[in-house]
Write a protein that binds this DNA or RNA. Structure first.
Length: 200
DNA sequence: CTAGGGATACGT
DNA sequence: ACGTATCCCTAG
């Protein structure tokens, strides 16, 4: 009894971290209310967010015997070039949120020429990331390219010239009809795969 | 509502 | 069985 136990997905963790980056640590309720993350974090409660964040920071110190090293409190990653992204967002009074600089490599991006046998338009990872970004931004009127870029940069570590790549992909996606471009803003085309969510 | 502590389900 | 990730309950 008690709990079916549902493990967190990467998307949820990413949303949580993005939410913390925006609102700060401890603003669980605020994060949950935020439309950007409420789509992804619909099941977890504010308490769940708190709990998740708690064990996320614990880098397992159950060493066999002596582990005096507080190794983990923060693993500062020497970000090669990426650092202060435009944090033009609400940076109200006390910014308790420390650096949650934990970039995820954006993985392989432009290698979708994988024509295994037929002509199956395999979606590249970037496509999905873009779709996710727009979906999560959830702007009723659509999202500007810069907004999308900013959102993605907050969660991933864009490669060399991400801007150029994004522009190309955006154009490609609107040409394929997966995105609708209106007034220099992009929105998800109707009936797009919405593979997200946990079982209620 | 948020922080902390305790209990329990799941993976190895 | 042990260690770890979630869930549940209580206090501030």
């Amino acid at each position: 009894m008690g709990a079916p136990k549902q493990r967190w997905t990467s998307e949820e963790e990413a949303a949580l971290r993005a939410g913390i980056a925006r609102h700060g640590v401890g603003k669980w309720r605020t994060i949950l209310k935020d439309p950007e993350f409420s789509s992804t974090l619909c099941y977890p409660s504010n308490v769940d967010l708190k709990d998740k964040w708690r064990n996320m920071n614990v880098i397992v110190s159950t060493s066999s015997s002596r582990d005096k090293a507080k190794t983990a409190v923060k693993r500062a990653r020497t970000t090669p070039k990426n650092n202060e992204h435009t944090m033009a967002i609400s940076r109200v009074t006390s910014d308790i949120d420390d650096e949650i600089v934990d970039e995820k490599p954006i993985a392989s991006l432009p290698s979708e020429a994988k024509n295994t046998s037929n002509s199956k338009k395999s979606h590249s990872r970037l496509d999905n990331i873009i779709m996710e970004a727009i979906k999560n931004l959830n702007e009723p009127t659509g999202s500007h390219r810069t907004t999308i870029a900013n959102y993605i940069e907050e969660q991933y570590w864009p490669p060399s010239d991400f801007d150029h790549l994004l522009s190309a992909k955006l154009k490609d996606l609107s040409t394929s009809g997966k995105l609708i471009k209106v007034n220099r803003k992009y929105r998800i085309a109707p009936s797009s795969p919405n593979s997200e969510g946990r079982s209620p």
